[in-house]
Design a protein around this nucleic acid. Structure first.
Length: 450
RNA sequence: GGAGGGAUGGCUGAGUGGUCGAAAGCGCUCGCCUCGAAAGCGAGUGGGCCCGCAAGGGUCUCGCGGGUUCGAAUCCCGCUCCCUCCGCCA
């Protein structure tokens, strides 16, 4: 693993690609300063621009020295005697000189790249401006709130009485925020995942079972690293055979298949006619949930491990097209919720509540009776060329190579989605009616329990 | 885990210190030929960065990082990945 201890902001050693559109930033720094401010980021753009100038100043000097050296290298084999000796000693001086200049340039470029890694996407005008989730706005709602003519139970009571969820034993085995799904609980989760995967498959999306572990570079490329998300991610390692010490590999458990599915085309130049790529990543996801102690501690809401079908799209660098796909992805998710008859609302996330990578983000929140509120179940994001730049994914439009635009949206995530399903489909006798669309995936079974 | 062999352009593959960004072939693009196609012939054909309105010029790039050298695809060190055989294994 690449040592990171002594580096304030780690840069992957990958090719030095501009993480943001530098020409745009140079011409229009105000837009970036505003975006950073609205997203609660502290970035010294003026210092960056100075660094950028410095870099551009050093490059010609370095290249000039190299050009001289290359020129001399062509001559040296043809020279003899004194002439050759003279040029050689001249080149020794130049070579030492060049090494110094290269060192200085490299130092600047590392800092130059580190700063770019912290810079945000510029949000759309329609994104509400505000510091946190309180500034989010409601876009739409769907469905009727469930009513019960008996005292409804929450999903934990239901799950335990039906013996389909076991939390106490899970705590013994895996600690807090873990769960066993058992019997029809396990079958229900598989049904809902399969149902959703088939829904996307029928619309021509390509299903992926991606790697569940990925390198730092993939997390950096998709915009999760560096930054606050780093402490959400489990690092994988093992015992060093020689020293006996525990050490980490350069592998991390994915918190979403977006990390690996989006990185699938890392470094590639795609054909324009093959775009958009509509990918559905079906995977387990892992989150440490550090810093959330005491929050959502009950039940299946906030857990360390869950399963998700994630929509990931790479499309042309065309905002109108991308926003159409955004609607398409959100609609796909809404169709699944509607077919399950689960009420939900769509929220526009404010600048402060959506990450630095996001150009536009909407969350879908599904009604959860036991919480007496909506709970986030889906997150739909348009990231412009933010990820494609970091991952260096381009397409050839016939004339020039352009960075793709990327989008992603949850299509379903379980067990969180089991909360509204169990709670809304419960009956007075404590049984659960299996939602009609899921029955084919449970061998026609209509009821859990009883 | 043991033993060996590799990594070069879109692909195959040559190249073991200097005019090598890299032979040759394939593919692709354009043109000629043709009623049209194939074949044949001719030309072209990676990407990043810097300067420039452009034309163009410079520079970097032969898995990654470092070293030796005036000069590295080529030599040395470390790393990653891939392949073959043996062992183990879901």
């Amino acid at each position: 693993m690449v040592p990171r201890e002594n580096v304030e902001i780690y840069c992957s050693p990958a090719t030095l690609v501009a993480m943001i559109d530098l020409n745009d930033l140079r011409e229009n720094p105000k837009a970036y300063k505003k975006a950073a401010k609205d997203k609660n980021l502290t970035i010294d753009f003026d210092a960056f621009l100075k660094l950028d100038d410095k870099r551009k100043e050093l490059i010609p000097a370095v290249e000039d020295k190299r050009a001289k050296q290359n020129e001399a290298s062509k001559q040296i084999p043809n020279l003899k005697g004194k002439e050759k000796e003279e040029l050689l000693s001249e080149m020794k001086v130049l070579s030492a000189d060049l090494k110094k200049a290269e060192g200085a340039l490299k130092e600047i470029e590392v800092e130059w790249k580190s700063m770019q890694l912290m810079m945000p996407s510029i949000p759309l005008d329609r994104v509400p401006i505000g510091p946190d989730e309180k500034s989010n706005t409601e876009e739409s709602t769907w469905g009727d709130m469930p009513t019960f003519d008996f005292k409804p139970k929450d999903h934990v009571e239901l799950g335990e009485s039906l013996d389909i969820i076991d939390l106490p034993r899970a705590a013994n085995v895996s600690g807090s925020r873990s769960y066993f799904l058992k019997g029809d609980g396990a079958r229900l989760q598989q049904a809902v995942m399969r149902y959703t995967a088939d829904h996307l498959h029928a619309k021509g999306w390509t299903l992926f079972c991606p790697p569940l572990m990925a390198t730092y570079e993939c997390f950096e490329g998709t915009g999760f690293f560096p930054g606050a998300d780093e402490n959400q991610i489990y690092v994988v390692g093992g015992k060093n055979e020689k020293s006996g010490e525990m050490e980490s590999d350069d592998l991390h458990l994915i918190g979403t298949s977006e990390v690996t599915v989006c990185s699938y085309h890392k470094g590639e130049i795609l054909k324009e006619k093959e775009l958009p790529k509509r990918y559905a990543g079906y995977s387990a996801c892992f989150r440490r949930e550090a810093g959330t102690y005491g929050k959502d501690t009950k039940g299946l809401y906030r857990v360390h491990q869950f399963e998700k079908v994630e929509q990931v799209v790479l499309c042309r660098a065309d905002q109108d097209e991308a926003l159409k796909i955004f609607e398409e992805m959100r609609t796909n998710a809404e169709e699944v919720l509607q077919s399950l008859n689960l009420p939900y609302r769509v929220m526009n996330l404010s600048t402060g509540d959506s990450g630095k990578s996001k150009v536009f983000q909407q969350d879908i929140e599904t009604w959860m009776p036991s919480r007496d509120s909506y709970g986030e179940t889906h997150s739909c994001s348009y990231l412009g060329d933010f990820q494609a730049r970091r991952l260096n994914i381009r397409y050839d439009d016939g004339a020039v190579k352009k960075f793709c635009h990327t989008l992603n949206n949850t299509c379903i995530a379980s067990p969180r989605i089991l909360i509204p399903i169990l709670e809304q489909y419960q009956n007075a006798d404590g049984t659960i009616t299996v939602p009609e669309v899921l029955r084919p995936y449970m061998g026609g079974q209509e009821k859990i329990g009883g």
